[in-house]
Design a protein around this nucleic acid. Structure first.
Lengths: 337, 337
DNA sequence: TTGTACGCGTTATCAG
DNA sequence: CTGATAACGCGTACAA
């Protein structure tokens, strides 16, 4: 509450505020004795520069805005973990906001964040977002923006994503090599960059192995949908039924696992599962199922690093481009197959 | 970048900054015509008051600091979701920091946040934290703090928690009523408020039903430990083995489920599970297992509401005390038992 | 009804 | 080596 300011120190020590300021940051040649005095007093009074005054003066806040569709999501919370780690090391704080998968809220939140004077923005687009003109405008003013995970081709900026195609390819191929032939794909809503990339990887793996791409084995599950069992049950009623599941998120992988357990279907004897998951969940699930681990934390870290680069030397040509971070396949002990 | 200020508007309209300021916030009696002019121009130029200047002037930031042990955790990310929802409705932004379960980092982070001039702090203590003097000091200066989930008896402030005792009691009793007699308890590290409360609820349910409290059925699992299967395997080797598991977090519940699936143990025929979980995960797991759902989001919301009350009318006597939000038992279809 | 001057906390510039 | 002053953007007491 009653924070001590430079002015307080100056008054107490019978100095001017400028002298105190200089002594504190050791800039100009200052009488060592004066400096010592000021330092000691400041230390004793637990002086902390007021960051708000600094922000006003320097026209920067040392705050990074992060806008994600949902915080309560394994991928995003791990990405934020990575962001936070980098940001704090570099002296930035992180302000979080959610778009709740709504385009409108995304736009408002972006505007609010900019009005709040964040130094840059780290955004993962809502599933509703097609139009990115709200971000284009900012980029044209040279405002630092980095997109991660859910990106858009229409925005010229730095983008950090998982290797969704490669991960899905590896997952599918792993199942094929385990002898699976009818691989169901349970995935998130279409029309998102990540969905399309994963679907493409799945399809390519099938085709390169001479297996048909059968749309009746694909299911799109909305983010709001909490019940996975009807979807799994429906797939199981196909004839012939699938002999494997490739779930495109850990939520879906988990749901499949639980439903299969409830239906007394033994993994991997009757079916195999590979989930596109995040670390932590991956480790917990990995005894019965194989997983493709998304580099969520690393994506967050990389995105934060690149954003801070953009912020701190805006004069340089911005290193535009997409960075793809590899996924990692954790194969279940093959003994069981 | 080049944001328009009151000064710009004043210059353009040949007015003084004070007139513009007053016109904008409609306070003093202003010539309606002038007011209209200013409003229109401000609108057209997309004027936004600089929140940093406001903060400096008003000595408040409209920012709430949230300090949690880990963001990448279902409970905390859901709690943050609730916090964010309330905060944004009330015009606050949310700055997130992690203690990473380290006492030292918690102390540093608290200090940093206060130096950053957050208006109040929402904290869930690290598992290492016994000493809360860093928070006591702040409370004595009347700095607004609300503790949630992981709290401490030694700090006199508002605390918001799950009804851990009641939830654990309900979970255990549910298992007993399903005919289970040897109920293993897989839980998080001891010495935390929530662990103790859940353990107490478990024990009370056993004792009230005439069952022995057997320490060999209890396992404490650290947050760093990703492999649950050795623990479950070890429990299964008890003689007689447990006929049920009560897992004290969704991470642990998930790990138990996966291990049991891998061991071909059928739920609920051979064993039952109840997990102390969070919504979302709860719904996904609920076909095979019953769950006690923690009100994570509601805890976040309530904590944020109470903190904002504290911030906005500090003069009033602070409503100190602990609020316990009920948990909810989602019982698996009993048909299977 | 409008304008002038000041203060919030800090640092850079210029003067001494 | 040190002090006075201006400036960052805003709101407001006071003066006109």
């Amino acid at each position: 509450m009653e924070a001590v300011t430079i002015k307080d120190i100056a008054r107490a020590l019978n100095l001017s505020t400028s002298t105190v300021s200089r002594a504190l940051r050791g800039s100009y040649e200052i009488n060592p004795e004066t400096k010592r005095l000021v330092m000691e007093y400041a230390e004793r009074m637990n002086y902390r520069p007021n960051p708000i005054a600094l922000s006003l003066k320097e026209n920067r806040s040392r705050v990074i805005g992060v806008i994600v569709p949902q915080i309560a999501n394994d991928f995003f919370s791990q990405a934020i973990n990575g962001i936070e780690a980098i940001a704090y090391n570099r002296g930035y704080h992180v302000i979080i906001a959610q778009s709740h998968e709504s385009f409108e809220r995304e736009v408002v939140t972006v505007q609010q964040s900019v009005a709040r004077k964040v130094d840059g923005l780290l955004i993962s687009l809502s599933s509703e977002t097609n139009d990115v003109s709200h971000l284009q405008e900012l980029r044209q003013k040279n405002f630092p923006i980095v997109l991660f995970d859910r990106v858009s081709d229409e925005l010229d900026t730095v983008k950090i994503v998982s290797d969704n195609y490669g991960g899905a390819f590896a997952a599918t191929e792993h199942l094929i090599r385990s002898g699976r032939r009818r691989i169901a794909h349970v995935t998130i809503p279409p029309y998102m960059s990540i969905t399309q990339e994963r679907l493409a990887g799945y399809r390519a793996a099938l085709e390169q192995n001479g297996l048909p791409y059968d749309e009746s084995l694909i299911r799109y599950v909305g983010f709001g949908q909490h019940e996975i069992d009807p979807i799994v049950d429906d797939l199981l009623e196909q004839s012939p039924p699938p002999d494997a599941f490739f779930a495109a998120s850990d939520r879906l992988a988990l749901g499949c696992l639980a439903t299969l357990q409830a239906r007394r279907i033994v993994i991997p004897e009757q079916v195999s599962i590979v989930g596109f998951t995040n670390i932590g969940v991956a480790h917990l699930l990995s005894p019965p199922m194989s997983t493709v681990v998304q580099p969520a934390k690393e994506i967050g870290q990389t995105a934060a690093e690149r954003l801070i680069e953009l912020i701190e030397r805006k004069q340089k040509a911005a290193p535009i481009g997409t960075v793809r971070i590899p996924t990692q396949l954790i194969a279940r002990q093959s003994s069981g197959v």
